[in-house]
Nucleic acid binder design. Structure first.
Lengths: 345, 345
DNA sequence: TCCTTTATGTTAAACGATTAGATTTTGTTC
DNA sequence: GAACAAAATCTAATCGTTTAACATAAAGGA
């Protein structure tokens, strides 16, 4: 049991505890001779400073709280990995709180009140734990404004949208713009889009990117090609059927997530439509399965690691009293697979 | 900033700090009148005890360190979720350390020395943080014996095998036995198995379950039906080809993970063999994609949540000086999907 | 009435570090 | 070797709790 304290070191090295502390932290000059002596004793006794005592005195714990809506949702681990990557370099530690929202209240993304309690409890716990700051990881991107009273401790949000707080989110508009751009490069112009739940921020922004793209590339505009899904496979299936059975079927469909893209594929299969030869599909999220289904799905990969990293970076800047420069948004990257084909004229 | 201390509460409630402490912790009788007064002041001032000070005095932090080999590997988040679920109930907190092994040294599962450094650093950090104990989560099941010196702090392992320490692992033997049992119920008797890397513990144990099953059910034994893969899709593909092109092809294949099962499916497709009509497949892991590929893969679901929960439970028992009863191993469950068919005679 | 419990409080010493400010040692210069 | 400055080291207060030891008042028993 690591029950040796700075006093033991001081005694054995025949110096005061102050000197030992100075050696450890390099906060004052210590002669080479004593420094080496102290260091050797520390080594010998395998001494590690007691973090609780340090935190108490220093009034900072070098620990941040990470609140995850649900660690088992696909995007969360990768974001945690990013946070961790950065935290390691900054010598920060992560106190993880998992809200388990998917298990506790399901996927009712709009029911803010329902999880308010869980989130508030989590924040309160973390504050008691004296974290220096917090990062909130959404499991499903959406609005989340002024939810928490963090009693002055900084909090950075990621994978969600907030109004007054710092929030790290990828560029939704750019993502759908790039997807459409890729399709036009492949010769497509009759492009349909299946959105996620239409009241959600990412749906709105990605639709914005879509409009921007069809304007920029002067594509034909057909309101029938804009369908409102709900993120679930079933809606992808149903809406793809509508699209493909309509008098003016599109040659390509952009689904706002891979799950709906799978629904689209199922619809196409039922109608005897070959993918990608007769219909091209692009998804979103680069879910693991999108690589394994056949054909594999071309999809927009989300910069999850980067988001986590940047969130930690931003938090660290805030903690050091620096201004947080809200630079370029992290950007999605198209992963080319087998669900898109060059359009034969 | 939560800069109010127990002294402020004591002053405002006109009692000593001791009394406040007794009220908070219920460690001694306090008259109803003063108790209520103190509680009201605490409420009013929104006071939260300083955890660093508590930890220092109590010599325990109510915090455990969780060391994950790589949080982005499929099994890890679910295990963390289980740990978290239990920790919540015990009022314990989780300090997460992510070794990022997959990124840092790839999937060389056998190169124990390569990550020893990372793991030791992690343990050392956590000890400095004064965690009460630790849980180690493997990302790939394998032997891991006597790796860490935790200076007397208890450590529980999960998703890996150890010799002297407490380790929570599911029942590998039962899992493959059950898979074979299911296949025989469906009328299969010519059953092949594609193992993972043969020097790994789970491969060996699952082969044990396989042998047990063919003995118990008196199935024909053909050494050609036992193939040694390496967990990767390519090996599933290659070995399935060997099996299917042999003079005595099996009617069912048990692959020791879903990734290899996908390889098997690819091989079957190339050979024009219909799944499940001409060949049944069972995988392992219940990976997300196994539900989305077509046909969807019947697979053994690992009790990950339960493992996490039990690991936390075991650690808590150790911390309370209780004996850890190594009860039943968590058990895998077969998920019926579309890759297995009743064998037509 | 006196003594013993019991209930309720308070005082003050830890826990193990950090860090002003005081003190001692060393080095430099004449 | 004296005088002084600079460098090295030490003393002791402090961070915010917990808790053993002690103090006091009220209650109960003879």
């Amino acid at each position: 049991m690591s029950t040796i304290s700075i006093k033991d070191i001081a005694a054995k090295a025949q110096v005061s505890t102050a000197t030992v502390s100075y050696v450890i932290n390099g906060t004052r000059n210590v002669s080479r001779k004593t420094r080496e002596r102290v260091e050797q004793v520390i080594e010998e006794m395998n001494y590690k400073p007691n973090n609780a005592a340090q935190s108490l005195k220093r009034r900072r714990t070098n620990t941040i709280g990470v609140i995850a809506e649900d660690v088992t949702v696909f995007n969360v681990p990768e974001i945690i990995d990013g946070i961790n990557d950065c935290a390691d370099r900054l010598d920060m530690h992560i106190l993880l709180t998992n809200l388990r929202l998917d298990k506790r209240i399901g996927r009712q993304f709009d029911q803010v009140d329902a999880y308010r309690k869980y989130a508030e409890d989590a924040v309160s716990e973390l504050l008691g734990k004296q974290v220096d700051g917090m990062i909130y990881i959404g499991a499903h991107p959406r609005d989340l404004t002024g939810l928490f009273d963090t009693e002055g401790k900084p909090i950075v949000y990621t994978y969600c949208y907030t109004q007054n707080d710092v929030s790290i989110q990828y560029d939704d508009e750019q993502a759908s713009f790039e997807a459409i751009s890729y399709l036009t490069n492949k010769g497509h112009s009759r492009i349909a889009i299946i959105s996620g739940a239409v009241d959600s921020m990412p749906s709105r922004l990605r639709l914005g990117g879509f409009y921007k793209a069809i304007t920029a590339f002067e594509l034909p505009f057909n309101p029938q090609w804009i369908k409102m899904g709900d993120w679930e496979a079933e809606s992808g299936y149903r809406l793809a059927k509508e699209l493909l059975e309509s008098p003016e079927p599109p040659t390509a469909i952009l689904a706002m997530n891979d799950v709906m893209a799978v629904g689209v594929m199922r619809a196409a299969k039922e109608l005897g439509i070959q993918i990608p030869d007769q219909l091209s599909i692009i998804g979103f999220d680069n879910r693991e399965f999108s690589e394994y289904v056949s054909p594999s799905i071309t999809t927009m990969d989300l910069p999850l690691h980067e988001m986590g990293y940047k969130a930690m970076e931003a938090l660290s800047h805030i903690l050091q009293g620096e201004q947080v420069e809200t630079g370029e948004k992290p950007v999605c990257k198209l992963i080319e697979r087998d669900s898109v084909a060059e359009l034969a004229n």
